[in-house]
Computed example of a mutant assay.
Amino acid sequence: MVEGCEHQAAGRSVATLDRRRDDFLVELLEVVHKYWPEAEGLEGRI
């Protein structure tokens, strides 16, 4: 498992990986907010 994690990290620091994760989550929330049916006045459609 350690080898797999090191391979995936590709030499990046934990701080860099944390920042990448956080940036992704912020962008994901923005997309969800933009395209979720409630944002278009379609409450209860999901």
Rank of each mutant, 00 (worst) to 15 (best):
A39H: 09
D22F: 02
V14K: 14
V32K: 02
E3M: 05
H7Y: 14
V2Q: 06
D18R: 13
L28T: 08
V2M: 06
R45E: 10
R21P: 01
Q8H: 14
G4C: 03
E27H: 03
A10G: 07
M1A: 13
E38N: 14
T16Y: 01
D23E: 14
H33F: 09
S13E: 09
G11T: 06
P37T: 04
C5L: 15
L42Y: 15
A10W: 04
R21G: 00
K34P: 00
H33A: 14
C5A: 13
V2Y: 07
L28H: 08
G41R: 13
F24Y: 10
C5S: 11
P37A: 02
V14R: 10
E43Y: 08
V14A: 10
A10P: 04
E6S: 01
G11D: 03
H7I: 09
R19A: 13
L25W: 12
E3N: 11
C5F: 12
H33R: 12
D23C: 05
P37L: 05
E43P: 05
V26H: 00
H7R: 13
T16H: 06
E43D: 15
D22W: 06
E27I: 02
P37C: 02
A39Y: 06
R45Y: 04
G44E: 05
G4I: 04
G11P: 02
G41T: 09
A9W: 00
K34R: 15
D23K: 12
R45C: 07
G41M: 13
E38G: 06
L17V: 01
K34N: 02
E40N: 14
W36D: 10
L25G: 01
W36I: 12
K34Y: 07
D23R: 11
V2P: 04
E40G: 13
T16R: 07
L29E: 15
G41P: 14
